[in-house]
């Protein structure tokens, strides 16, 4: 069992993060706070530079009063949780059918060349990381990618350049 158990719940996270997680817990029936596990992981990941460490996951488990394994299972099952450092801008490029037949290969190649990284890697300055993702449900705007919370559609190498220039 985790040493975190002895910690007071109110010593975990910042008050802002606790408030956000509590808001999620309130969405579900009493005694079903496990339902907030996914949201809690998302909130903690966002506050932790976009990725999760074991310590952070253990804290989520302690906060929700769950065994750590319950949190590890969730954090490793869903693709949006990261377990290695990512760039300040995580470029999630779709290469599924509609994007593929609309030249997503060219988009990926352009990103590889311009940033000098492949899928799963981070630029040295930490500004960008690259991730291959499955269909994001925006096939009408293929090829497309997601950066942070935003979708960028109808990508071309030229458009990519101007998007990258704007991302700090």
């Amino acid at each position: 069992m985790s040493a975190l158990e002895t910690k007071n719940r109110n010593e975990l996270f910042t008050p802002e993060i606790r408030a956000e997680i509590d808001h999620e817990i309130a969405k579900y029936p009493e005694a079903e706070s496990q339902s907030a596990a996914m949201a809690a992981l998302r909130i903690v990941q966002d506050a932790n530079g976009g990725w999760l460490t074991q310590e952070r996951m253990d804290e989520v488990a302690a906060y929700l009063d769950l065994p750590p394994i319950a949190i590890y299972e969730v954090a490793t099952f869903y693709s949006m949780y990261e377990h290695k450092p990512v760039g300040r801008n995580k470029l999630c490029v779709c290469t599924n059918i509609s994007c593929m037949i609309n030249n997503s290969d060219q988009i990926v190649e352009h990103l590889n060349n311009r940033l000098g990284i492949k899928f799963g890697e981070v630029t040295e300055d930490g500004r960008f990381s690259l991730k291959e993702v499955e269909c994001l449900g925006a096939c009408g705007g293929a090829p497309m990618m997601q950066v942070g919370r935003k979708y960028y559609e109808n990508l071309t190498p030229e458009r990519l350049d101007s998007i990258l220039d704007e991302l700090e």
Binding site: K27, V74, Y78
Partner: peptide, 10 residues
Amino acid sequence: LNVHLGGGAY
């Protein structure tokens, strides 16, 4: 009425 956000799993 509430939203539950997924985490990336078809």
